[in-house]
Design a protein around this nucleic acid. Structure first.
Lengths: 305, 305
DNA sequence: ATGGGTTATACTCACAGTGAGTATAAGGAG
DNA sequence: CTCCTTATACTCACTGTGAGTATAACCCAT
């Protein structure tokens, strides 16, 4: 066996579901909670995604369907130090079901409370985050660095002329980290929290990985039929919209949502109805697979203004 | 030192430039050519992208600016067998310059001749590829598999009701591979070529990695200002358009391209002119950085029909 | 200097998609 | 039967965009 550097590779699974209008991820109940993950086994696993599926199954009991590679994290300082840890993260979309003991569903917006704009712009954004970021920018010595910080904060958080772009989840999290506003920043340095934004913590850099996942989902929502991985086989248009809203973190115009989804040929009627709407019964629809052949970028409409 | 599995990790750089209306990548001149790459050094490299930069520099002499992680490849069968090889691929965009000896620029469309539609739909698509793919689909036993193959071929190559989607570069390459239409398929099996589509080969699965890169670039063109990494500091709108066309592999409507790029605030006038147009002199523009604050998804217009 | 070729740039027009709002339908609860 | 609720249909204004026409400014050959 040749000389091999001190390097471990593991696979991390971000398993996402939406139930009761709340996006959740599957976490192992440690303190703090961690994402399902384990050592990549080059002998057992023919492909990386199979390894991710295997760990998901072994640690949570769930058999995941849709899976895509997210990102490979390899910064120094992750994990224990030596050996160096490389993590290949995968995103899985499922319909929520009861996981094995030791795992539980964790509301995604507990990790990122500033990301949920369905009930208006969260007050902690303008109350706490924006001032803290501007202070952080001002704290840099005058010149390029200060300019750069201010610009990044504006773009990421939709301050000044910039608008909120729901896709920039990772950018926002990383900015908060750099500015010392999330607890991980202080934990990574062995100190205790300065003025962190209150939010649930995860082990290691698992919150960063979760941020990558949410950003990816939001990005794809508009041009890939990913929502349909998360809703039941048959669904009402309102139900579909609520899942889309939960993920995008934004409210959508109901009539326009219907119109666009129907006219795009994304769904087809089943003839059946859902009687439990609380008002007029809603027709049940299903995903219309043929749309894949008809449209180059089939997705649910998310306005970008 | 703990027991460590037989696993190597290397970094691969896809370095892309556009010169004379031709997108090219930087390849090491072996036979077949290979992408610049080397073992990830957990001690020397603080981050993965620094490792990619380091190998790019050492092997090609180029200092790369814009870099982004592409994908991590880990299928069994890559590399020599044991140890298993994991490759983290990075995309770099540069302005073309003379590389160190041993490296050379390789026209990207030599690898993917079916991807360049600037002079019309390449005849090998309908002449060779489409029939071969349909035959491959028909060769599956009747049922789900046959249906699935036919659908994938239609979507990837824009057959039947589907339209050509320039972004699906990887999907197309992988389909050709599966159908045994590229030389790698036969090389990987130790046989010689059946009826492969004529095109330049690369070592290992480096053509697959290059396909991933081209797809990524094409995808980002429309919503990130990536073209500006590839054009000079000052450029004419025609020059900008030609680079965009070269990458997208599609011709664009000149007047509309100008209008959209200008109105979006992507560029600003320099006042200077380029006299060597062969006709009326063209005004020189530069990238307008403020657009990042004004628009959520600034990019060059690529029509999707 | 003049006319034809070439590329750059300006402007017009039609139309589809979309944001926003109004109106109507069909259930349940009291 | 009335009111409340949710679902669904339709209208209207506006903007972005595909496509084409028109004009400007250079070169070259005559």
């Amino acid at each position: 066996m040749t000389d091999r550097p001190a390097l471990d590779v593991d696979l991390v699974a971000v398993i996402v579901a939406v139930t009761d209008d709340e996006p959740r991820l599957l976490a192992r109940q440690d303190d703090p909670p961690r994402l399902p993950s384990g050592r990549f086994d080059p002998v057992a696993d023919k492909t990386l995604d199979r390894g991710a599926r295997r760990w998901a199954r072994e640690q949570t009991g769930l058999e995941v369907g849709y899976v895509e590679q997210l990102y490979t994290f390899g910064d120094r300082g992750r994990g224990a130090g030596v050996p160096r840890l490389l993590s290949v993260a995968y995103l899985a979309l499922v319909r929520e079901e009861q996981p094995a003991p030791g795992s539980a569903w964790l509301p995604l917006y507990d990790l990122f409370p500033w990301e949920d704009h369905r009930h208006g712009r969260p007050s902690l954004l303008d109350g706490l985050i924006a001032p803290a970021l501007l202070a952080w920018a001002a704290a840099a010595e005058a010149g390029a660095e200060r300019e750069d910080r201010a610009e990044r904060a504006q773009i990421a958080f939709g301050l000044g002329p910039a608008r909120w772009d729901e896709v920039r989840v990772l950018e926002r999290y990383e900015l908060l980290y750099e500015a010392g506003l999330v607890a991980e920043y202080h934990a990574d340095r062995g100190g205790d929290s300065g003025t962190p934004v209150a939010s649930t913590l995860m082990a290691l850099d698992h919150r960063r990985i979760a941020a990558t996942a949410l950003g990816r989902i939001r990005g794809k929502l508009g041009y890939r039929p990913v929502v349909f991985e998360l809703v039941p086989e048959e669904f009402t248009l309102s139900g579909l919209q609520q899942v889309a809203e939960a993920l995008a973190g934004v409210r959508l115009h109901k009539q326009n949502f219907r119109r666009t989804v129907e006219r795009a040929g994304l769904v087809e009627r089943t003839g059946r109805q859902d009687q439990h709407t609380g008002g007029r019964p809603a027709e049940l629809f299903r995903f219309r697979r043929e749309v894949l052949r008809e449209r180059p970028r089939p997705g649910v409409p998310i306005p970008r203004r």
